[in-house]
Design a protein around this nucleic acid. Structure first.
Length: 490
DNA sequence: GCAAACTTGAA
DNA sequence: TCAAGTTTG
């Protein structure tokens, strides 16, 4: 710990390290933070509100999350004897300014992998090094570096299964590193902007009112969520994650998206449990963690994937659907209860059950024939777990224009999917109370219920609950012919 | 160059 | 049963 200090003492004394934090607001398993602590000089912990990311600013749901995450992280830093410094502006300029203010001679950060972010980092690193500042970047947002994995022929993977096998062949991911016990601050802390002035919380305060009942942003909340998941839900993961009413998923995605917990921490929390929990369940969960790795692998090799069809043949697809169609989907007024339940859960909770995401997304793309990019944008706006890689990759998967060669005729039937995965309508009734009194038999198809049943359930279709936006069978045929024409044109 | 394989389906 | 077409080893 003292070695570095002695090395530097002749030139720069105890010039501080700037620790630039991004979507890695945690103390545990944070390689840049650990390395900064180990230097034994004061650390300036910096978070920059940058003007534009690739896809524009964070959506309002994730901005709500960021507000609380920054506040928690500042509290955590205070326990280590430090504070979080907030600044706005173009990152390179902000760091230069802060170097001038503090006399820092070193900048550390954890790498990011979104195309705009990593390109910016490369530029900033070059500029700082030219100015004589030492810059070091660290891994930690992913289990393995996404550019490292290659097929036997040296190309990037396009298909998940072989990617998974190659991932497994790399052996266990590195163990997480511990949080440091102190992180000394400089004698004079640089000025910080005020978090409240950043106005990250929604302007309609009632919008996010339910978020805080469900989510606890911050590292402690993430670790608590992980612990409870491993204790309670992992043993029945495969069935639980397919059952919207039970929601057996881990709920870790927003924490991972903000870097409040590292994937290595999550991975290794599922080690050493084999006596209590079947290995099939653990593998199933790990495969989901590795899907995130795979999404970043694709994003690195297809930097425009959030906007551009990976399979360019789909550029010619003749999308339909008007503003009103789109608005009804956003609001959960499609007339298909499972879709509406999902879209309303999204609005109320900032998240939607995985199975229902597929159903709702398929409905937008196939039944309404609306461009997947509009759905992607809405999800980015409303999801607390919006992730530049996952969101684009999964929308492209649903739309059929992604890296995999899924059959184009796979169209989810919202009625059958509802009956299969929410047979008792528990999930639907929770989010679509106006159909709650329907018997199970009609809960996913109110438009087929006899008049007497509707009357009994106090439903007037078109008034108390919407008529179905499309006839699914016809919509399916329309989608198939649109997709077929793209195929034939090739 | 060939065979096997491919997250999540519908009728 | 149907019905694609590419990726990977």
């Amino acid at each position: 710990m003292n070695k570095n200090r002695n090395d530097r003492s002749t030139s720069s004394g105890s010039a501080p390290t700037i620790l630039w934090l991004r979507k890695d607001l945690r103390l545990g398993d944070h390689h840049a933070l650990k390395a900064a602590a180990d230097r034994g000089v004061p650390v300036v912990a910096l978070y920059i509100r940058e003007p534009g990311e690739d896809l524009g600013p964070l959506g309002p749901a994730q901005s709500w999350w960021l507000h609380h995450s920054l506040a928690r992280f500042d509290e955590d830093l205070q326990r280590l004897g430090n504070r979080l410094i907030l600044r706005s502006g173009e990152a390179g300029k902000v760091i230069e300014t802060l170097i001038a203010e503090t006399g820092a001679d070193t900048v550390y950060w954890n790498r990011r992998y979104d195309p705009a972010g990593s390109a910016a980092d490369t530029r900033i690193k070059a500029a700082l090094e030219k100015a004589g500042v030492a810059v070091q970047s660290f891994a930690g947002q992913l289990l393995h570096e996404p550019m490292r994995m290659k097929t036997k022929s040296g190309t990037p993977f396009r298909v998940y299964a072989p990617f998974w096998r190659a991932f497994e062949a790399q052996g266990e991911p590195d163990l997480p590193v511990d949080a440091p016990s102190t992180l000394p601050a400089p004698a004079h802390l640089p000025k910080s902007e005020s978090l409240d002035n950043w106005a990250l919380l929604p302007t309609q305060p009632d919008w996010a009112s339910e978020f805080s009942a469900i989510w606890t942003p911050g590292e402690a909340g993430a670790r608590d969520r992980l612990e409870r998941f491993v204790e309670e839900r992992l043993k029945d993961y495969r069935a639980g994650r397919e059952t919207p009413a039970r929601d057996g998923s881990s709920g870790l995605s927003p924490h991972l998206a903000m870097g409040e917990i590292s994937p290595a921490t999550v991975w290794h929390a599922t080690n050493g449990l084999s006596s209590r929990i079947k290995s099939d369940e653990i593998v199933a969960f790990r495969r989901e963690i590795v899907w995130r790795e795979y999404a970043y692998h694709l994003l690195v090799h297809h930097p425009d994937l959030p906007r551009v069809n990976i399979n360019r043949r789909f550029d010619r697809l003749d999308w339909q659907g008007d503003e009103d169609d789109f608005r009804r989907w956003c609001r959960g007024e499609t007339g298909f209860p499972i879709v509406d339940a999902g879209m309303r859960q999204l609005w109320r909770h900032g998240a939607m059950h995985n199975r229902v995401r597929m159903i709702a997304a398929s409905f937008l793309v196939k039944d309404l024939l609306i461009d997947w990019r509009r759905g992607e944008a809405w999800f980015r706006h409303t999801l607390v777990d919006a992730d530049p890689a996952n969101n684009g990759v999964n929308w492209q998967w649903v739309a059929g224009c992604g890296a995999d060669a899924a059959p184009f005729f796979r169209v989810f039937n919202p009625i059958l999917q509802g009956e299969k995965f929410d047979p008792k309508g528990i999930y639907v009734r929770r989010f679509v109370p106006e159909v709650a009194k329907l018997p199970d038999r009609y809960i996913h198809r109110p438009f087929e219920a006899p008049a007497s049943v509707l009357a009994e359930a106090c439903i007037t279709l078109g008034k108390t609950y919407p008529k179905p936006q499309v006839d699914h069978a016809k919509a399916r045929d329309r989608a198939l012919s649109a997709y077929r024409s793209v195929k034939d044109a090739a």
